[in-house]
Simulated assay, not measured.
Amino acid sequence: MTDTSTTPPPPAGQPPEGGNTPAEDEFAGIPSSPRRHPVIAVATAALAFFLLFQIKDDVRYALSSSQAQDLGDARRLAATRIEDLPLNRYVRLSGMADRESAVVLDTQGSWNFSQFFRLLGTNNRIFVQRSPDPLTVEQARQDVFVGRLMPFSSLSFQEAIRKHFAGRVSATHFFVPARMHQVLLAHEGGSLDITDMLGDRVLLAANDELVFEVDRPGEIRIDFPRVRFVDEVAVRMAIEREGGRLIEVLADHGDPKVLAVVVDFPAERRDQALHALSEAEREMRIRPARRSLRVRVADVGATSEGITIKAGGQVQTLPLARIQAIDTLATVQIPDDAVILHEGERPSGAWKTLVVGLVLLGFAFVNLLALRRRDL
């Protein structure tokens, strides 16, 4: 008879027959660490890539050549399209700084001030942000600028700068009289589009003012030092002693230490009289007399004989030979394709940004790798 009954299990704590007790897994009861939710991992990686995108220009600049690319004269560079400029590169260029309309920046809230100005003859296309003060002797002595060339639109405060220059900064523009005459001959009214002596294009509205410096034939301006000539009476006596005539005392000449007058002398005695006056007072300044005429653009015209101006209801013709200077004040309009050179910014100085970029890149890949492990 066959026994088909099963062998009962051994009592608790007693090893089974014919074998040893298997080792228990001491970590079996420890719960596994919670895995990062895939949405969080993706969002973290996306944030890292976004931050990396924001500093991509700085990373590229850190990896670029530390040898400055010589671009030559800024006026020639201004004729180049912005697409053809070596942007985000270490460059060198030369140009005449317009310090008349320069501003001083302290963008970091510290006491590190830097100059910010345009280069003349570039149609307001090229600006320079100088290294923080103090400048070296070499930097202050010559107008050669070395640094990072960037689009003007890359400035975080570009809108504020554009608004400031357009509303508060005026630059003086000088025009060649012969060129002004040609433009006025072809002018049909309205605004006046003309290029100044440095090559900058200036657009003048009908109500903008032009200042004409015109010779006064046969008349001489003399600046008498007030130390010896205290009033008009003393000046008149000195002039009449040499056979001259006092025509006008200039009130607004800008120097309180002198008394400026306009005089004339008989042609045959002019040289002798001026020599006698200059010998009597060495600090006296003698020069041809000029008259400043302020005229609206709408009141300026031209004929074959010269430039015409309308003043007091009368039209006066100014021969080109008598016009010594023409100038105006105009606000600085910054075009969309303007660029800025950050002086002193070298590629080697951007190594910290490169380190940050590597950290962000590693952070993004760690989170993406966590997603892959979860799938496995």
Score class of each variant (00 low, 15 high):
220 I>H: 02
369 L>Q: 10
192 L>K: 08
119 L>C: 06
201 R>F: 11
327 D>S: 14
270 R>N: 12
32 S>G: 09
93 L>A: 05
201 R>T: 13
69 Q>S: 07
240 E>K: 12
262 V>M: 14
304 S>P: 03
70 D>V: 01
345 E>A: 15
263 V>H: 15
318 L>K: 10
261 V>R: 12
241 R>A: 11
43 A>L: 03
314 Q>S: 14
261 V>C: 10
46 A>N: 00
221 R>T: 12
30 I>T: 14
219 E>P: 01
274 L>R: 05
373 R>V: 04
44 T>N: 01
12 A>V: 06
329 L>P: 00
316 Q>D: 06
241 R>S: 09
234 A>D: 02
239 I>C: 05
334 I>H: 02
191 S>F: 03
205 A>G: 06
195 T>W: 03
258 V>E: 13
294 R>F: 08
119 L>H: 08
141 R>F: 11
324 Q>F: 00
76 R>G: 11
151 P>N: 12
371 L>F: 04
78 A>F: 06
137 V>D: 12
113 F>T: 00
131 S>F: 02
99 R>L: 14
96 M>V: 15
334 I>Q: 01
223 D>N: 06
33 S>W: 13
159 E>D: 15
327 D>E: 13
343 E>T: 04
71 L>W: 01
109 G>N: 02
14 Q>R: 14
322 R>C: 00
216 R>H: 02
330 A>N: 09
99 R>D: 08
326 I>S: 10
62 A>I: 06
75 R>F: 02
169 V>Y: 00
85 L>G: 03
271 D>Y: 06
88 N>R: 01
352 K>Q: 13
296 R>C: 05
202 V>Q: 01
50 F>P: 01
251 A>C: 03
308 T>F: 13
48 A>W: 06
238 A>Y: 00
30 I>A: 14
241 R>F: 06
69 Q>N: 01
87 L>M: 05
347 P>E: 07
106 D>A: 10
228 R>C: 07
24 E>A: 14
318 L>Y: 07
132 P>W: 09
116 F>Y: 10
310 K>V: 08
96 M>T: 15
74 A>R: 08
55 I>W: 09
365 F>W: 13
372 R>H: 11
142 Q>S: 13
312 G>M: 05
180 M>H: 04
288 P>N: 07
59 V>L: 14
54 Q>E: 09
216 R>N: 03
226 R>H: 09
244 G>H: 06
278 S>E: 15
232 E>Q: 05
243 G>Q: 09
212 F>T: 04
29 G>K: 11
75 R>W: 02
160 A>S: 14
261 V>K: 14
176 V>E: 09
371 L>I: 14
181 H>W: 12
36 R>S: 06
235 V>K: 00
45 A>H: 00
